[in-house]
Nucleic acid binder design. Structure first.
Lengths: 202, 202
DNA sequence: GCATAGTGTTGAACGTTGTTCAAGTGAACA
DNA sequence: TGTTCACTTGAACAACGTTCAACACTATGC
């Protein structure tokens, strides 16, 4: 029984595979996601995934786009326009840490996965990657009026939050401080914002 | 020719394997480090590594301890006692970023490797992990007099630097700002230190 | 209506991985 | 001298990502 199925278009297959990868990844992490498991999960042979989605790199990138999108939506829900800018910054820190805690396996995949084939990321992936950052830039615009300084400032802040989440999740902070990630994130954001008073150019 | 060699003690074998892993890892990254390659590199069969060092998790941990030690030494070289505390903080940021740039493959292994066997880290690994942090705590003691606040503050700062290095290395910052990692690190440290003026408890 | 090209699909295979097994060697000890 | 035991080995196991060669079916050209 070898047949042309055509029960799913290429786009449907991509979504289907990404969805199953998300299910498995949320439960078992990156190690649980294998081509053969994905294939049986979607009811196809492994080779069909190579035809519709691509290799493992492509599968993980499709999964990560989903995670990035959910992170963006999660942050957006936390941003109330009419608030003091400092509170917005704290809300973003809280939102980021809450998302990482609730989706720690998927977030780890987003962060940890090392593509076998180095090379430029696809455009649709870079776009999904910059979307949450653009959201933060917009929300913190009152705090950093100059556009160039704003890009810098938000990039540094975003990376700092990333670092706190990463080290906390891998247990590499528990031995040095009893505070949890949200506490450290709030501490850092508060001081970072407080120290951004004067217009300083590097 | 199957024999008891005893040309190396267990400790010598561990060092030998870690050394070869460091060589390969610095050149080719984590993917280049395989049990068979390590075995032929040290002149033994793969199983001998399992007897002397342990499984892949153990090998990578031994390698990471070396990397952590070199990071600590590299930071120590940058810390001059008689300097303004703010300058010490900036020197630490510079040192961290310089180390990551010069040892990016080994640093990636230190950060990225996900152990198959979750569970508590060995004591000697936690010790090596906290040694650079203790160095920073000591160097920044003038900036954070209260010991409890100091632990918190240094942990957050350390994680933030980690995050900047990580995102910069994986190219996830280049699309949002043209500034490089050292610039962002200095910006963050400057503001973080400037914002730590008042004694604030979370 | 019929041949043909092309796409989707499949089971099987290839090469590699971490890890374990069964066996054997030789040193140390009784 | 006999026994035990740590160490070492080649081979094997299971699983991985990926590719191959072949098959089934649709769509097209005439």
């Amino acid at each position: 029984m070898v047949a042309r199925r055509l029960e799913h278009t290429r786009e449907e297959m991509i979504d289907l595979v990404a969805e199953k990868a998300e299910e498995i990844g949320a439960r078992e992490g990156l190690a649980g996601i294998t081509m053969r498991r994905l294939a049986t999960a979607v009811g196809y042979a492994p080779n069909s995934i190579y035809h519709s989605v691509g290799d493992m790199d492509a599968v993980i990138l499709r999964l990560n786009v989903r995670t990035l999108d959910r992170l963006r939506r999660s942050l957006q829900r936390r941003i109330r326009p009419a608030r003091a800018p400092e509170d917005t910054a704290l809300a973003i820190a809280d939102g980021y840490m809450a998302f990482v805690r609730q989706n720690h396996r998927l977030w780890s995949i987003l962060v940890d996965y090392a593509r076998r084939d180095q090379g430029p990321l696809p455009d649709w992936y870079e776009a999904a990657l910059s979307r949450p950052l653009a959201l933060v830039e917009e929300a913190l615009a009152p705090l950093f009026p100059d556009p160039e300084d704003r890009r810098r400032s938000v990039a540094a802040l975003w990376a700092a939050l990333h670092g706190i989440a990463a080290l906390s999740l891998s247990g590499k902070l528990g031995m040095v401080t009893p505070d949890d990630a949200p506490t450290l994130a709030r501490l850092l954001v508060r001081r970072y914002v407080a120290g951004s008073g004067g217009s300083d150019s590097p």
